[in-house]
């Protein structure tokens, strides 16, 4: 399986998004990898848009089974969500449960005009009817394969693969 360099994927995503951006848009990254992708996208988008961060720990659907995530970070939405066109950003789209939780969380800040989803990697395996509007790369990974994003001290992004095909 060929993995493209995440920085090249982000270049392409930024190019696809640029024509659709408007002044009442905002970027919202899902903690942690989604925030890295959001920051990298923002650098390339050439317009200054408000940015927010979501930690979905309080909205997970597996809380009663596995409890609270050990490192919850505060969510931070420093703008009015009401009537805003939100670009929701994550690193890897898998079951769709994180996106479901993030949308519920976002609505507790207000009613956005629209939400579009941008993901660096769509790895398949959806359990909910969730579909991304902007996809860096689509992969078909099995349930025992895992891909995640990491960021080094210099801010460079790279993928880590674990499991069967790695």
């Amino acid at each position: 399986m060929h993995l493209t360099d995440p920085n090249a994927l982000i270049d392409r995503m930024a190019a696809a998004m640029r024509p659709l951006l408007r002044p009442d848009c905002a970027l919202v990254g899902i903690h942690t990898g989604g925030v890295w992708v959001m920051d990298a996208l923002a650098e390339r988008l050439e317009v200054e848009l408000p940015r927010g961060v979501l930690d979905i720990s309080f909205y997970r659907d597996d809380f009663s089974r596995i409890g609270l995530h050990p490192e919850v970070k505060p969510s931070r939405i420093p703008f009015e969500v009401e009537d805003r066109h939100v670009l929701l950003i994550d690193d890897v789209l898998y079951t769709g449960r994180t996106v479901r939780a993030a949308m519920n969380l976002l609505f507790d800040y207000g009613r956005p005009a629209s939400i579009r989803l941008a993901v660096l990697v769509d790895r398949g395996g959806r359990e909910l009817p969730v579909c991304a509007d902007f996809v860096g790369q689509a992969l078909d990974l099995g349930p025992d394969e895992h891909i995640s994003l990491q960021r080094d001290a210099a801010g460079m992004l790279s993928f880590i693969m674990k499991g069967a095909g790695a």
């Binding site: 909205y59 939405i77 507790d108 800040y109």
Partner: peptide, 17 residues
């Protein structure tokens, strides 16, 4: 608790936990 502080600053001050 620090994460819950930010919940109190929102429009909807509840989480479904």
């Amino acid at each position: 608790a620090e994460s819950f502080i930010s919940v109190a600053e929102r429009e909807v001050k509840k989480v479904p936990l």
